[in-house]
Write a protein that binds this DNA or RNA. Structure first.
Length: 509
RNA sequence: GGGCCCAUAGCUCAGCCGGUAGAGCAGCGGCCUUUUAAGCCGUUGGUCGCGAGUUCGAAUCUCGCUGGGCUCACCA
């Protein structure tokens, strides 16, 4: 939306009208109109009173909002005025107002912010309307609004000028109201269960808590390089060490990776931690959370996502990684112990040979069992994920790809961990936390080895975190959920940019 | 980063087998004091994303660039 050509003419006309209003009111942007409530309050005050009732006992209101439409008759006009709470029609007629007020009406454009004071009545068709005694233009829309019933369709414009998108597209407003509802629901859910909401640093000097490439920044006074956090995990567990047994944080993480319709560089996660619980407890909690959330937002336990009907009635399917590989990729017991044997099955599952080799190589020096499981995960991603349409807890991940998770008592090469899949996408990740500081040291060393072997996403060795563990982390389980994806699922949006108010875009030319 | 597709008036879109642009809404002027996508009459508005090329002539064909969408890869 440039400012050249014909648009200049439209803007010029509006600036002239603004000057006309200034000539009447002596001020371009008046600040002396006081509302007496929102539109919804005015509507509620009228209730179901009919025209004669409103005439018998007049209800005076003072509302303000944006003019969304005008039907003008020359000597009278109807305006649809919208504020955050709703829309109310206003009626300004020449013989009911003074000359200056009617002049303001004539200088009004669609898009202007106006204030209206007057009594409520009902039109011939019964629509509640405020008959203006006072009518003011509070802020001129110098720029014309997009067309009234097609709205703004252009995706780029909607993202770049979200303010315009929100003005004209009710569906967009609804998406972001839903987003707020989702976050409020999760907060209440956890607050009610004794979780403490906390805030931990978003600027980290040590990279950890997830496997991802970071953004880097710099603190001048300390002359110190910092990472924008990729996860809050290690700080939240420090708080559990500190005695906050149940904590959560809802905030942004930053990962320096490609953009897609499912990835924005900054995205919102909730992470929560519960002492004296295991990943099995969190599965139950997660089922309860999703059941209540989906019911609350959708009004049913069925959500439609990417053309699939998703049923959130618990219990969700539980599927161990190795069982999934047996079921979908033809793995046999021997394949889980020897990467040479697993390799052909991984390729047969649709994984590119050089990719499989690359992953194998960047593991560093690990046992055959660990290597077999790690490349088996590639087969899982390629062949199993597409089957995970209904909510599914995928459990028992390889320890080698889970540096912060507690090992399974029955098999220390696996961990007490699950990921939640919905509609073939990963929505959450949870595990019983590794609270053995010596094992954590070894895992960090493994990450350092992987980094040395070329894994750009490996974690750094966090000495202070290990020190925290030496003070004693209670047996704890923790979980992270991607808020943006939950909102996508609950609103039916296919593009993450539709659920983020200001997604990252290239600068305008 | 790879592949496919898109970019025409403020907005939504036609035009695209080459002959220098149209509609609806918005705007402007006129009529209209209960409209609901108000109506009727008239009317303004466009370096057809940017830059090259082919051609007598390019919105239209070719190439490049920019931005975006879908998709694959990395990831959540």
């Amino acid at each position: 939306m440039g400012m050249e050509g014909a648009e200049n003419e439209l803007v010029r006309q509006r600036l002239e009208k603004q000057a006309g209003i200034e000539a009447i009111d002596g001020v371009r942007y008046p600040n002396d109109f006081r509302i007496a409530g929102f539109v919804a309050d005015a509507v509620a005050a009228a209730g179901d009173k009919d025209g004669p009732a409103l005439e018998a006992t007049p209800i005076e209101v003072a509302i303000a909002g944006r003019v969304m439409a005008v039907n003008s008759f020359g000597k009278a006009a109807f305006l649809r005025v919208r504020d955050q709470s709703g829309t109310l029609q206003a009626y300004v007629k020449k013989d009911a107002v003074d000359e200056a007020t009617f002049e303001r009406l004539k200088l009004t454009d669609i898009g202007d912010i106006v204030g209206v004071r007057g009594a409520l009545f009902r039109t011939r068709t019964g629509e509640l309307t405020v008959q203006a005694k006072e009518y003011r233009v509070l802020a001129k829309a110098q720029h014309p609004l997009p067309e009234k019933w097609h709205g703004l369709k252009d995706m780029e414009q909607r993202h770049r000028m979200r303010y315009v998108d929100l003005i004209v597209n009710e569906e967009s407003r609804e998406v972001f109201r839903t987003r707020t509802k989702v976050i409020q629901y999760i907060r209440r859910f956890l607050d009610e269960r004794g979780y403490l909401e906390v805030e931990t640093p978003m600027m980290h000097s040590v990279l950890g808590g997830a496997n991802a490439r970071p953004f880097r920044t710099h603190h001048n006074a300390l002359d110190m390089d910092l990472y924008m956090r990729i996860a809050p995990e290690l700080y939240l567990k420090r708080l559990v060490v500190g005695g906050f047994d149940r904590v959560y944080e809802i905030n942004r993480n930053f990962r320096n990776e490609g953009l897609s319709n499912r990835h924005n560089p900054e995205f919102t996660m909730i992470e929560f931690y519960q002492a004296f619980a295991t990943y099995l407890d969190l599965m139950d909690l997660t089922e309860e959370l999703f059941r209540g959330l989906v019911q609350s937002v959708r009004g049913s336990l069925i959500a439609e996502f990417r053309g699939q009907k998703i049923d959130f009635e618990p219990p969700f399917r539980r599927l161990a990684i190795c069982d999934a590989l047996r079921e979908y990729c033809g793995f046999e017991e021997a394949d889980f112990h020897d990467p040479q044997k697993a390799f052909p099955k991984v390729l047969a599952s649709g994984v590119a040979k050089d990719e499989a080799e690359h992953v194998w190589k960047k593991l560093g020096d690990v046992s055959p069992r660990d290597a077999a499981l790690a490349i088996g995960m590639l087969a899982f991603e390629a062949k199993v994920e597409p089957h995970l349409v209904q909510p599914t807890f995928v459990t028992d991940f390889p320890a080698v790809v889970s540096p912060l998770s507690r090992r399974k008592d029955a098999d220390p090469t696996l961990v007490d961990r699950f990921e939640l899949y919905i509609g073939t996408n990963e929505f959450g990740n949870a595990f019983s936390e590794l609270n053995d500081p010596q094992d954590q040291e070894r895992r960090f060393q493994g990450q350092m080895a992987a980094k040395a072997a070329g894994d750009a996403e490996a974690m750094e060795y966090d000495e202070d975190y290990v020190r925290a563990l030496t003070f004693g982390l209670p047996p704890t389980a923790g979980e992270g959920l991607g808020i943006d994806r939950m909102v996508m699922m609950l609103t039916g949006c296919d593009n993450i940019r539709d659920v983020i108010l200001f997604p990252l875009l290239r600068p305008e030319g």
